[in-house]
Simulated assay, not measured.
Amino acid sequence: MTSPFVRRAADVPAYSPANHTGTANQRVIGRETVGARRVEVLLGTISRGHGALPHAHPNLEQASYLVQGEGIGESAGRSHMLRAGDWSFNPMGVFHRFEVVSEAPVQVMVVYAPPYSENPDAATVADGADDPRCRVHADTVREVPMHAAARSLPHYHGALARPVITRETVNARHLDICQLAVQASGGAEAHTVPGTEQVLFLQSGSISGEINGQGFTADSGDWVFVPEDGRFSFAALAGGCEAILVRAHDASG
């Protein structure tokens, strides 16, 4: 069924983001698409040899998940290879860059909290790769744990959540992100998370559920947005599903 809470990348236009080359972004979750105030989620497509030039976001956090392809990420002067299925996290004020090295384009899901919306005041551009600011705050950067133990989540059943971007793993202030594996007929009972917006990205399978009493269905590749204090429930259909659950809140959340 059609729902204003379910979004698809094909439904939004692409744009060329500032401080990037060879990049086309689609802002799937944002103010203009679902009225989000705490979180922004986009899908970027980046060609070989291109990516993000060195820059920092003074007042927001950025988490990135590689859907396909390979690239070199650098944060506070530390470089590492990123492949499909890997996460990276850039804390507030830390300079970072990214370059695609695979022949095939990279597809990357990027999460900002609070929203970025290409606000020029929300980005600081480095004066080239030798800018000394690119190597400061290295002590604040933590590697995202790729093999953390899965655990149960309150209000969920038949589901296990592996934390990736949290206060405990990378000292995130605004974001709480986990990878979900949900059995067939598993899901979440109706619940709210106060002061928090949620996004569920379906990587495989299908679900049906309700948000604030309105029914929805979502399939692999769909994004489901739950507004702040929204009442949310869902059940996985035959075969179960895999998903990424994003929760965004203020720094005291």
Rank of each mutant, 00 (worst) to 15 (best):
W223N: 11
H50M: 13
L53Y: 10
L160I: 02
I29S: 11
L43R: 15
G22K: 07
A113Q: 03
E210A: 13
V125G: 00
A172W: 09
V141R: 06
T192M: 12
S220W: 06
R162I: 02
A159K: 00
G209K: 06
P13K: 03
R78G: 06
L200S: 07
A122C: 01
G158E: 07
T33L: 09
S47H: 12
S185R: 14
F201T: 02
G93A: 09
E189Q: 12
E99Y: 04
T33S: 15
A184L: 11
G73C: 05
R38Q: 13
P194M: 01
G158N: 07
P54S: 14
E74K: 10
S208P: 00
D229P: 09
P120L: 09
G93H: 00
T196C: 14
S47T: 14
T2V: 06
R173S: 11
A149Y: 00
E32T: 15
A172F: 01
G213L: 02
V164R: 15
V100D: 04
V144C: 04
D127K: 12
N171S: 15
A251C: 02
T21D: 06
A10P: 00
C178L: 09
G209T: 12
T21V: 08
Q179P: 07
H155M: 08
A122W: 03
E61C: 12
R37W: 13
I211T: 07
G158T: 02
L237S: 14
G230T: 12
P145W: 04
A56K: 15
V136Q: 11
V125D: 08
D219P: 03
P163R: 09
V226T: 15
L66R: 05
H191V: 04
G221Y: 14
S117R: 13
D121N: 08
G215E: 13
T2Q: 04
N25Y: 03
I244E: 02
A138E: 04
Y116C: 04
S220K: 15
C178Y: 10
